[in-house]
Simulated assay, not measured.
Amino acid sequence: MRIATAIIVMLMATPALAQSEPPQAVERAYVTARSVSPTPLGIDRERAAWLMERAESPAVAETDEQWRAHWAASADRDITTRGMVVLSGDLAQGCIDIRLGGCTSPSGGYVTMGEHQLFWQIQEGSTPEDGVGAGFVLLADSGAHLNPVAWDFDGVFYEPPVVFRQDDSLYVAVAGRSAGTGGFNVDRLFRWMPDAPEPLVQIDNETWRDTLDQHLPPGVSVWKGVAFNYPSLSADTALWRDQDGNCCPTGGRAVIGFEIRGDALVVIDVQADAHP
């Protein structure tokens, strides 16, 4: 169930959301799915989408059951994936079977930082819910074998992971794009703590858009995905003016500067070459 980035902007508290109390069975399914997901922020976005959908649905019970079943299946899949044992040689033999049907793996390998290694596999295939799609899997080396520690399948294209260091912490970023002309970011960013029980902790790299307009010159905005350079904590983007078509931005370009504060990516500066 691929949730569009734009949904987040729409999910402000409204009276409609208070029409009925969400059923405990669905809430329990959400909590369980979140607790075992390597990308729990995505589960939070799904919950917000569920609340919006049930507020507008003429068949609330049916909507609730669809989301309960979705989260139950998601939890089962993630629990199974966490228990997988993978050999390094398996990465070149085909897809690690997590979600995609007809799966192929165009690339895989490992990234290093000092004495630490993190293995990875990019996947392409399809699901009945979303059609053609892609995903990635990150795997930690336990010595005798590899264990999946993070995975996601929200995009139609992913790049190999990048490891970088900021403020004495290690981070792993996987850039990805969603379907559609917007090419929205489905990048995933993690703090990497190789010796911790949970070696990858998801960093929020989406809600920075909520404050972006405060840093932009008047009359321009960012309509599509941006091109991140994670090691420099920056991103490049075109700028759109209100009268522009979706295809053709005329507002110039900007470089966005970020910091990682706590578990979130935060905009600190925008250098805009804005066209009048």
Rank of each mutant, 00 (worst) to 15 (best):
G135M: 08
G257F: 01
Q19C: 08
Y30S: 04
I256G: 04
S105T: 14
W67L: 04
D242E: 14
N185E: 04
P249V: 06
N246L: 12
S126P: 00
L11H: 12
R28G: 10
S74L: 12
R177E: 07
V270G: 05
G135E: 04
V186I: 03
V162Q: 06
P160N: 04
G83E: 12
G252L: 07
D263K: 11
T181L: 09
E124N: 11
F184M: 12
G155S: 11
V60A: 12
S234T: 15
V226T: 02
M193P: 00
G257Q: 01
C248I: 04
W240V: 05
I268R: 15
D90F: 06
V85C: 03
S178H: 13
W71D: 04
D168P: 01
S142C: 06
E65P: 00
P38D: 07
G94R: 08
T5F: 05
C248E: 01
G262A: 11
S178R: 14
R209G: 10
F184V: 03
P199F: 02
G251L: 03
L170T: 01
G42V: 07
S126M: 06
A274E: 03
T207H: 11
L239S: 07
L17M: 15
V85A: 14
D97G: 10
F136A: 02
E53A: 15
S57M: 02
V85Y: 14
A59I: 06
D152C: 10
V9N: 10
E159P: 00
T32F: 09
S74N: 11
T207V: 06
L212E: 08
H70T: 04
P161E: 05
V226N: 08
I256K: 02
R177A: 10
L189G: 01
V9H: 14
M12P: 03
R47N: 12
W50H: 11
L212T: 11
T211K: 15
F228N: 11
N229I: 00
G143R: 09
T112Q: 14
Q121T: 06
P276Y: 09
P217M: 08
Q117W: 12
V132I: 07
A4S: 12
C248Y: 05
E56W: 13
V255N: 14
Q202F: 01
E53M: 05
N185T: 10
A140I: 00
M1E: 02
Q166G: 00
C103F: 10
S37V: 09
Y171A: 00
L265E: 10
V163P: 02
N229A: 09
F258V: 06
G109E: 02
A92E: 12
A73W: 08
A61G: 08
E259G: 04
Y30E: 02
M84W: 08
I98C: 11
D167W: 02
F119L: 12
A69P: 03
P22E: 08
A235G: 11
Q93H: 14
L212Y: 14
P106S: 09
A73R: 15
G143N: 07
F153K: 05
G176H: 10
T250K: 12
H215D: 06
A264P: 02
A92Q: 10
S232D: 13
L189M: 01
